[in-house]
Nucleic acid binder design. Structure first.
Lengths: 143, 143
DNA sequence: CAAAAAACATGATATTAATCATATTTAGGA
DNA sequence: TCCTAAATATGATTAATATCATGTTTTTTG
């Protein structure tokens, strides 16, 4: 459902939200260790997120990655879409090209209500919402 | 969420349910054409399903694949599990190893109620249930 | 019993996703 | 200004899926 890349990206963005800002940047290597993601892969992912302006970065000594307040208001789905593309989550679970409400596949009615709800939630919850839950110890990140 | 193999398997099993029985078998090649799945891949998949006794087969002239009544009562989830394994659908969407109700990942509460419902439905609906919907033109298979 | 038609078993190739590696660019500090 | 520390760009490798191909076994039928 989510690629590894999306999972890693979500973890990283959340970690950055909790631990960085413009004055407290963090290197790819350190982030990768904290959230248990292979370091070279993490670096590449963070670079991609920075290029698409989901997170921010500066080069050179004292440089690193961080996230600024406006980006903390992005939704979970925005992060996922940047990595996996828009259609992946919404495509027919039986792989039929033209499956829709008027011409549904056999499992459409089984899958779709739940999935639509899930997607709606991912589109409404922001990074910041999740970060708050983390601060309150209502949810957890490691492993 | 589902591998291509699972999607193809589901389509094939449904097709067999509608069009075959012990006296009306069908060759891999013909099934593959009907449901738009690459023929060699279809053959391999059908052989696997037959070995695990999800469907039946006989060799030689007039041979082919078919499904018998008792197998039509298998659930959708059983088909999926035979191909993708049990855990794939239930694993944490953030990829955390020990995510659970007591120590949930940040998106656990967003995802899980919907997903649990989806899984419960896949575990309760049988091949036969879907075949009935197909017969009544309530749902569709092609492409 | 021989030939042909089918599934079966096995392995080869291709494609995609995940992971690793490294030379280049940029910025800070001595 | 020069050195160093960081991200960046790019590409190589590995691993997992998906796909293709083919020789072997079984069964029907002439």
């Amino acid at each position: 459902m989510l690629s590894n890349s999306s999972k890693y990206a979500l973890k990283a963005v959340l970690y950055l939200t909790l631990h960085t800002d413009e004055n407290n940047k963090m290197m790819a290597k350190d982030i990768s260790e904290k959230i248990s993601v292979p370091k070279a892969y993490m670096a590449k992912l963070l670079q991609g997120l920075a290029k698409r302006e989901i997170i921010s970065s500066t080069k050179g000594p004292k440089g690193g990655f961080y996230i600024n307040p406006s980006n903390k208001n992005r939704t979970i789905m925005e992060i996922i879409e940047v990595i996996d593309g828009k259609k992946k989550m919404e495509s027919c679970m039986m792989g039929l090209k033209d499956c829709n409400e008027h011409k549904p596949c056999p499992i459409h009615s089984i899958i779709n209500p739940s999935r639509s709800k899930m997607i709606a939630l991912l589109e409404s919850k922001t990074i910041n919402d999740l970060a708050k839950d983390l601060k309150l110890n209502k949810v957890f990140l490691p492993s």
